[in-house]
Write a protein that binds this DNA or RNA. Structure first.
Lengths: 337, 337
DNA sequence: ATGAAAGCGCTAACAG
DNA sequence: CTGTTAGCGCTTTCAT
């Protein structure tokens, strides 16, 4: 058995074998399988039968080389361990699988440069790329779009790029949280930020800053957007003299609540806390987390359909903006300030 | 511009262009890039310079077709929305990326048949496949190994198959939990199971059943292993008259605790709860979850190295069994039975 | 050590 | 509607 055959676990059966078995040309087999042009019914049946009989599976590499495109789509995420992306990836996977594409995943580690490199690598290997919360330079994003890489941007709006885009209106969502806190009597609040180079962080911060217009005093504290929060965070918070903390996302809210619990600070008794995203676990926490839901399912669906359009050579559209709903739960309560 | 060129966003620069630019043959370029055979220093330098100057990127499909293997590895997970798997996938991704492989992910939806089909699809497209908590029939697993598909089984031990395997000793971990509960005075406990066709569920259940030897009474309740728990679960639990519930995993423990909170049942005051896996969020919960850690990092590392060995044509080894540590946190307390 | 040339398996003109 | 044939871009003998 040849080395190649061993790799595939058997002497690979090729399109030629099928053609021979069915007594037709390889072109006909190809046409039957791809459905690119009509083939006489009885011949097609014969081909199908031969395919089944021989257990033929087209070689994707050969197909890719010949047709110029691989049935692979890539999705690049800042971190594979952030639950927020799971649902989106899951949606993309459903769409892609149904359309006969496979999903390649890549993790950029949240680094703009690494992200750019990863995409550079991927672009020649896939038919299209989903960028989830990308952080790369606007110039790079523009360049990719200019170079006709099929792109879908999720949660990053970059007006200078023509890339297809779907995003949640984060600023508006932040305002909703602020308004809710104000209604509860909170006037001095803190925003525990995420990575400040992320579009989502900028938008959310923008939303909270708008609350200043309504008489709130909003202090920004730097955070990571992950479960790893600064050990000193509680002290910094207390020093800031606030009655509520709006966190960049659910993950950091959860970590913060954990810290507060350890220090004996009650939530929402002494401090109200809000998250962002509504990851599935949020409603099961004690206290359940007040947050805004990021419509991840719709986000994923829209992202997929934007990709689908591009695969059909349709023109990219206006950015799709999605609304987030406020979910009032137990982690917020009346101000005690 | 040709259709093909358009797809790649530019007229693709091929190995021939590089060869022309450097004034050498394509074979030489190939050798320099792959390092398969020695090339005179100055010529190699010239090639490297040309590659850089033209921004050449080898076409993976052509490479795959020619060399017979694609630099892709696949990982099949039962569900893309379970945090537990992401930790492992993250590790696999690191190893694969470092070795120049890309990771294809596929979701089987937890269905044994779908899983088998997915693998059938994938096998010709990748150099190897990781199966995380696979549920497919033992016969299928054996068949794959027999057909020389490079496989790594994670968290499923199938003695009849020669596939490389790494798994956590779930039965032992379950015993550790049981022993801990017994020490706290719990004698009547329930096991809220996962999907009963999963190896992990069987092993955990086996571990808890062993506790009967030590005088505990263990009732099994059916569960899903996800955040979606039966609405009636609290009633069923109360009816079972137990003082502690060992859950299949952290996810179902979290969901259960959420339900109990809603019904006003205190944890661990009235009922002690344990999880399984130690997902990152577990320690931030209130109460923090008593669980056993699944050494996901090591699991991922071992899985990767098993794959690496196979890529080097090494023989598969004995199953690697990993130990799980008990993490005592706030969700368990003395029995009030 | 290097080049020429033969494919890898498939698709897509181009003929018929 | 079907067959023949020429590549797709790369690796790899086989010569030199």
């Amino acid at each position: 058995m040849s080395e190649r055959a061993r790799r595939h676990g058997r002497d690979a059966v090729t399109i030629r074998d099928v053609a021979g078995h069915a007594g037709v040309s390889t072109a006909t087999v190809s046409r039957v399988l791809a459905g690119t042009r009509p083939v006489r019914r009885d011949i097609a049946d014969r081909v199908v039968a031969s395919v089944a009989a021989l257990g033929y599976r087209p070689n994707p590499a050969a197909r890719a080389l010949s047709s110029g495109t691989l049935a692979h789509l890539a999705v690049v995420v800042p971190s594979l361990t952030n639950p927020y992306f799971y649902e989106i990836v899951d949606q993309l996977n459903s769409g892609a699988t149904a359309a006969g594409f496979r999903l390649l995943v890549a993790d950029s580690g949240g680094d703009p440069e690494a992200e750019w490199r990863v995409v550079g690598d991927l672009r020649s290997q896939v038919a299209g790329i989903f960028l989830l919360s990308p952080r790369m330079a606007a110039g790079h994003l523009r360049q990719l779009a200019d170079e006709q890489v099929r792109l879908v941007l999720v949660n990053r709006v970059e007006p200078s790029s023509t890339a297809a885009t779907v995003a949640v209106d984060n600023a508006r969502a932040a305002m909703r949280i602020a308004a809710h806190l104000l209604e509860l009597g909170h006037r001095r609040i803190a925003y525990l930020g995420g990575q400040s180079d992320a579009w989502q962080d900028q938008e959310r911060w923008r939303g909270f800053q708008a609350a200043a217009e309504f008489g709130m005093i909003v202090t920004r504290l730097e955070g990571s957007g992950t479960l790893d929060v600064d050990d000193q965070i509680v002290e910094r918070l207390l020093a800031a003299d606030v009655t509520a903390v709006a966190c960049f996302n659910d993950l950091s809210a959860i970590a913060l609540i954990g810290q507060l619990r350890d220090r004996g600070v009650s939530v929402p008794g002494q401090l109200s806390i809000t998250g962002f995203d509504d990851i599935p676990i949020a409603r099961f926490l004690t206290p359940a987390l007040t947050t805004v839901n990021s419509p991840t399912v719709e986000l994923g669906e829209r992202a997929w359909s934007l990709m689908e359009q591009q695969l059909r050579h349709d023109v990219p559209l206006e950015p799709v903006m999605l609304e987030a709903d406020l979910l009032l739960r137990g982690s917020t309560g009346p101000s005690v300030g």
